[in-house]
Amino acid sequence: MSEVAALPPPESAFGRFARRFIEDRVALIGLGLLVVVILVALLAPWIAPQNPYDLASVDVMDSRQPPGSHAGEGFTMWLGSDGVGRDLLSGILYGLRISLTVGIVSGVLAASLGLMLGLLAAYAGGRTETLIMRVVDLQLALPSVLVALILVALLGKGVDKIILALVVVQWAYYARTVRASALVERRKEYVEAARSLGLSHARTMLRHILPNCLAPVIVIATVQTAHAISLEATLSFLGVGLPQTEPSLGVLIANGFQYMLSGKYWISFFPGLALLVTIVAINLVGDRLRDVLNPRLER
């Protein structure tokens, strides 16, 4: 019981945070957009006019139709169709699911891995710390797009593989940040107190140090998620990302790339717009989170 009391009451902290967050109108718009994006992605199977992955419902005779055309099955393709007859609106809704899944899952995994290793480094010190931090340094010295490109080329196509590659290129950012804040926390009195009370290392780390490192992690997580989504699109564009038949936004854009000059702008334009809105929304939220949670953190 005493431990819980030692923590600041969560409601009030969150309330203060929320109040500060909504002071900025632009950030609020960003948050609104993000909520919409996540909602439509979640609801895709119910609101999309077509299941773009079901080949029985996609007809090649409907291919390359401009926005507003009617599909053979009767519904209106508000954003037109792509090169194999997929309704673009449906494709974008489902593609958003994949892009967000890739971004969020890889972000959560990378954050968990980075958190663990960062905490371990800060807490254990000595050889363990040196080893982890050297790997982090090396990882950060290599540009993520290049590492991911080579990794995915080696691993092959697929959602799981691209997530793995994205975790590999992201975890080091978290580890570095967590270690830095954990080092600061470690010197604080309450940790000393907890340790002198004879609490186990793991308990001290998880109950006391970890919560205080979360703010910067959340900030990095938003930036990195946007980065991961964009990176996935880039890799798919370069032809090493996700498979063609269940397209993410990046694959949709890449498929539309060949139609750009022939005037069929919509095949690549609308998925590009969806990608842009998603990333901008996340970045707006991330920007504000940084200001509110940790004004000193600059990228």
Binding site: V26, F257, M260, G272, L275, L276, N283
Partner: peptide
């Protein structure tokens, strides 16, 4: 500043094609 957020968010490959267009 709004433009700079856009600059962060735009995928490079997409912008490249727009520039050529």
């Amino acid at each position: 500043m709004a433009g700079s957020i856009l600059g962060f968010s735009l995928p490079t490959f997409w912008v490249g094609l727009m520039l050529i267009m």
